[in-house]
Design a protein around this nucleic acid. Structure first.
Lengths: 223, 223
DNA sequence: GAACATCTGTTGCTTTTACAACATGTATAC
DNA sequence: GTATACATGTTGTAAAAGCAACAGATGTTC
């Protein structure tokens, strides 16, 4: 990948938002970065290791995976170019990582040390304060998102899950009609329910006058 | 509450861990703290506000609550003395808060501004770097916990939820036998399933030779 | 516009869960 | 030891969800 392309990807990462282009190159020098080219199935870090660096994907993709007691593997997330991974584990200072990261396909990544972000560097560059704020904001927003998702998943029935999710969307937009960013299968996966059962439930709720919908456009009714 | 008692509570909060007693008093002066005595049902912040301060409970308790589109209220968490609340919302810089906080009973709380934590103060006290690290660690650990909980809640059946949860405990302890910090009702609430159905499922799994248990002591078997 | 792929909704059947009620087990106080 | 409260396990029934198969709607490509 060309150097200019790499910088373009890096700039899209929220960790560096608000950092001027001129400063970015200098900043990258501060952060003890290791570039790495991974072949498919190369591990970036593995379960049980003491947590270390965080990563940024430049090309290809990385899977975060977890194995249960009997060795069955689950893919928790797929990380695509411009996205960070491992930042929560790096900042948490865990004894042992509960997950592994491996290249889902050939991938270029860069690794860096969160401690270089958290503590001012020798040159005390002004943008460190910006980096720290970005890191806090990234973790905090993910936190808020995860708490909301748990609220939706904790509901006992498909209907309750739908109402919780749709209420959150209405709250977010401030409107009773809104679009959702999922198709039916994605919504069902998000709520951990069966797609066809969910479709039936939506139809039932429409019959009861609770809501109206067309594709991914929804409207909720108070009465 | 006596001043000494307040300091004792404050010291238990992980935000201030590693901060020497001598520095703590000075530090508290930096953080633009407002003390507040709340009567039962007083709001600390309300849904829709632009997010502002974070809080620390000194006595009494605070509920974080959310209302759905139809006005049905859910208690998301209960915050007890020594615990922070609103820190994720404060750091995330949200347009509008998705939740409200109110005193569940008469409560003493202190409020502070996360920006005073995130950026070095005029006096550039050394412990600010410690505070920032504490804040990052708090958010990151909560993140890891929430991701794990979502992994457990996303399973489609009671059995799968139990296996995911128990696998995580085994991974954490590094052992096939371990204790869990929940009784049956609490575990059922955590996994969002019915207690009695979960008890039946556990018995069935025991019959199948998957695991053994007695009260909150569990052992998993590979074969 | 014909062919194709994809998304969404519907239906009947089977399996699983929730619920309620009760039985057993365990810890604690008197 | 007995009484008590509480936690855990068991059972039957009703309700809900999962599953599979299909039909209709929508969108895309040639």
């Amino acid at each position: 990948m060309k150097n200019s392309g790499r910088l373009d990807i890096i700039k899209t990462c929220p960790l560096f938002s608000g950092i001027a282009d001129a400063e970015l190159a200098a900043l990258l020098g501060c952060l003890a970065i290791t570039a790495k080219n991974c072949a498919k199935d190369d591990f970036v870090f593995t379960t049980g290791e003491r947590s270390g660096p965080m990563g940024l994907v430049l090309s290809g993709s990385v899977h975060i995976v977890q194995e249960d007691f009997w060795g069955r593997r689950t893919i928790l997330t797929r990380i695509v170019p411009g996205e960070l991974f491992g930042e929560a584990f790096a900042c948490a200072g865990l004894e042992r990582l509960p997950v592994s990261a491996l290249a889902a396909e050939a991938a270029e990544i860069i690794l860096f040390d969160y401690r270089k972000i958290a503590s001012p560097c020798a040159r005390a560059c002004a943008c460190h304060s910006g980096l720290i704020n970005n890191m806090l904001r990234i973790l905090a927003r993910k936190n808020v998102f995860l708490v909301q998702k748990i609220e939706h998943l904790s509901r006992r029935s498909t209907r309750e899950k739908l109402l919780a999710y749709l209420s959150a969307r209405a709250r977010e937009t401030g409107q009773s009609n809104f679009a959702i960013p999922f198709n039916r299968q994605e919504l069902a996966d998000y709520l951990a329910v069966d797609r066809s059962a969910m479709s039936s439930e939506l139809s039932r709720m429409r019959e009861e006058g609770i809501l109206e919908f067309k594709r991914n456009e929804f409207e909720l009714f108070k009465t």
